[in-house]
């Protein structure tokens, strides 16, 4: 498996809540086929799925770029949404700006970003109001 490298790009549609998570589903299935340990796959799946949901509910969609190496996955999620006003607040568990309609769908508990940070080995978020948000995550296997 050494030297193996897979590059995937997904358009995350902003107007379709039902399809949110399909990119994470595809990445999960790729990692499974590669024989990556299930605990590592789960960390990738959760971190990326939370990011996808965020892009759908807050940013009108975005792009997910996933690079899979033999020992790690790099995930870059970028959107051209409204950006995050107060990053420090946004990273606090339980803080949410999601509208009630989103909470009725089962999301918006203010756990998305903290969860991504928890499951990723490296986590970086850059956001500018009116410009957009980019999240970079790395998850190492093993």
């Amino acid at each position: 498996m050494v030297g193996q490298f897979i590059h995937q790009e997904y358009l995350v549609a902003g107007n379709n809540f039902n399809s949110a998570g399909s990119a994470s589903e595809a990445v999960k299935s790729t990692l499974k086929k590669m024989g990556v340990a299930s605990a590592d796959i789960r960390r990738v799946a959760i971190a990326m799925y939370e990011g996808e949901i965020n892009m759908v509910i807050h940013a009108g969609g975005g792009v997910a770029v996933v690079d899979i190496y033999y020992d790690k996955v790099n995930i870059v999620l970028s959107d051209k949404g409204g950006g995050i006003e107060d990053l420090e607040k946004a990273m606090q568990p339980g803080f949410s700006t999601a509208p009630e309609a989103v909470q009725r769908l089962g999301f918006g508990a203010g756990m998305g970003l903290p969860n991504m940070k928890k499951y990723a080995d490296k986590f970086d978020i850059q956001s500018e109001v009116g410009v957009g948000t980019t999240v970079r995550m790395t998850i190492f296997f093993g």
Partner: peptide
């Protein structure tokens, strides 16, 4: 589902009253 993603460890069963496709995606993840 946010809480399922944050708190589930190795539980094999999800009990929910929510019905949208994200219950399946969450379960899958």
């Amino acid at each position: 589902m946010s809480d399922v993603l944050a708190f589930v460890m190795d539980q094999g069963v999800l009990i929910t009253g929510l019905i949208n496709p994200q219950i399946v995606r969450t379960a899958l993840m």
